[in-house]
Nucleic acid binder design. Structure first.
Lengths: 184, 184
DNA sequence: GTCTATATCAAGATAGAC
DNA sequence: GTCTATCTTGATATAGAC
């Protein structure tokens, strides 16, 4: 039997799942290792510290959103309405199946306040989200209005994800998507 | 010199400040004790565990909001407009001076997912907030609409507090209050 | 690439003196 | 009510064998 090789990406996806469900500080290297079928010392072969795993986890999700979700906002040969429908559909698909909510939002509250590195990465993510929404909204709204709406809906989405998980009720979150679609 | 007595309430207010700025799991009993001018063992004279401090911190803030902020929604000899202005003014006053945002929102994301006791207390708080807003909105909106608006604005406020702290920009949060006032 | 073993430190919590 | 002292556990991280 060949020894199973664990990739850095596997470690990141397990870490992300744990960080979302248990929180960042409440997740130990041993927890991460166990989820990967390793013992904690082995993780240090792939990442030099827990903070590095945290930062790379945030970047990993950011890249996923840029590539798979935010990108649809810039498909300018498609109508704003279709782009918004697609954007909402993909966002829903992610968050309705994301046990523990939004990692970036969670760590914005848990870690960012005390850690400027985390804060910077999280800010970049939310700005990209806001810019994507603006790109869809700007054809149907004055530029200034579109910017404010984009900002507002990023906040609202994060708040709604919080409430969805707290009350175990997807409707709170789904209503945000409905309202977004009515804007174009 | 008499020995300084530390009250349970002092310990709670110091804990709340630390939990908001550093997070719950990242705040130790030693951190709390130091903020109170004690050593960690002494805290156990007042509270039997860290979790008890967490729960009591949440309840402490909940009671503050019920008594000082949510209450204005039920002053039915005042007009809805004046009640909303007052409600927003008091909420602003709290959160604009609350380093670290909203403890209940923070712990909703950090702890509640794994701890049903925390979840229950936090849910009660957000439901009370929602009910207060509903009480102001119901005179100017159909009952169902007022309920949905109340829910939506609780989510939006929490998201906006997150963004305010992340971007160090109060405008994101202040816009929520402005929009709330336009609803009555 | 993963393991065993270990170093170092800090966590939550308790006992008992003052 | 606070202290010193200590217990036990678990945290991050490293060294070196396989």
């Amino acid at each position: 039997m060949a020894i199973k090789k664990t990739s850095a990406e596997q470690i990141l996806t397990e870490s992300i799942s744990l960080f979302k469900r248990r929180g960042y500080y409440n997740t130990s290297m041993a927890n991460i290792a166990e989820a990967c079928g390793l013992i904690k010392g082995s993780i240090y072969h792939h990442f030099k510290s827990k903070d590095e795993i945290g930062i790379e986890s945030l970047k990993y999700i950011h890249e996923y959103f840029v590539k798979n979700i935010f990108s649809v906002a810039y498909e300018t040969n498609t109508s704003p309405k279709d782009r918004m429908d697609n954007f909402v559909k993909k966002t829903d698909n992610y968050f309705l199946n994301s046990e523990g909510g939004c990692l970036l939002g969670n760590l914005a509250l848990e870690v960012a306040h005390e850690n400027e590195n985390f804060k910077e990465v999280i800010r970049t993510y939310f700005t990209a989200w806001e810019n994507a929404l603006y790109e869809i909204l700007k054809d149907r709204h004055y530029s200034e209005d579109a910017k404010n709406l984009a900002k507002e809906y990023v906040s609202l989405t994060q708040g709604a994800i919080m409430m969805m998980n707290l009350y175990d009720n997807k409707d709170i979150y789904l209503d945000v998507g409905k309202k977004l679609k009515n804007l174009v």
